[in-house]
Amino acid sequence: MTEPLPFSAMLGRLLRHRELGVPELADRAGALPSDIRAVLAGAPPAAGLLRRLAAASGLHAVDLFVLAGMPVPDDLVPSDAAAARWVPDIAQDGARRLSAAQSRHVAEPARSMQPEPRNHD
C-alpha cells in the first residue's frame, strides 16, 4: 500500500496549487516565514500554526491536524452527540473507494478499536 505523504509535502502541494509563496502564506496566517519554511522542511507544526494556516488557506483546522498526524484538540471535535450518527456513513463511503486489500488492512485494526470516553469539562 502507498504510504501517505508527509504533511510538509501536502503543504507544499497546497502552496503550488494555490500559487502562494511562503511570504504570502505567512502574512495571511500571521506567522513568520521561517516557521512556514521549517514545516515545509519537515519540522512538526505547532498547534497554533496549524490553526492559523487553516484560517489563511480556507481549510478546516481539524483537517490540518489530521493531515499533520497530530491529535485533534477537544475544542475542534464536535461535542454534539448526534454527530456520531454520521460516522458509519462517512466510513462506509471511504471504504467503498478502497481496494479489497486496502479494506482488509484498514478494517482489522478498526474493529479492535473501542471509543475512548470524552471528558466534557
Results as ranks from 00 to 15, higher is better:
M70G: 01
D75E: 15
A26R: 05
S79W: 01
A46V: 08
R16I: 09
F7G: 03
E24C: 05
D74F: 05
V66K: 02
A100W: 05
A95Y: 11
A54S: 06
L67H: 05
R96I: 05
M113Y: 14
L76S: 08
R85F: 10
P6D: 05
A107M: 13
V66N: 00
Q102G: 14
P109C: 13
P78V: 08
S57T: 10
A107T: 13
A54M: 02
A91N: 07
A110I: 06
A81R: 06
R97V: 03
R111K: 14
L67M: 14
A46H: 14
T2H: 12
Q114Y: 06
D89Q: 10
E19N: 13
V66Y: 01
W86M: 09
A55W: 03
E19H: 12
P4M: 02
L32S: 14
P23E: 13
P6E: 01
P45E: 03
A29K: 04
G94H: 11
I36S: 00
D63Y: 04
H17R: 14
R28D: 10
R37T: 13
D93P: 00
V39M: 13
A68V: 02
A47Y: 11
V62D: 11
A84Y: 01
F65Y: 14
L25T: 05
A68W: 00
S34T: 14
A81S: 09
S34C: 07
L20M: 15
Q102C: 08
T2R: 14
R104M: 12
R52L: 04
E19I: 08
R13H: 08
P44R: 03
Q114F: 08
P44Q: 00
D80I: 06
A84T: 06
S57Q: 01
L40D: 01
L40Q: 01
R28Y: 11
S79N: 10
I36C: 04
A110W: 07
L64Q: 04
F65Q: 04
M10R: 06
P78C: 09
D74L: 13
H105K: 12
D35E: 11
P115C: 05
D27E: 15
F65E: 02
A95E: 08
D80R: 04
Q102D: 15
S8F: 03
I90N: 03
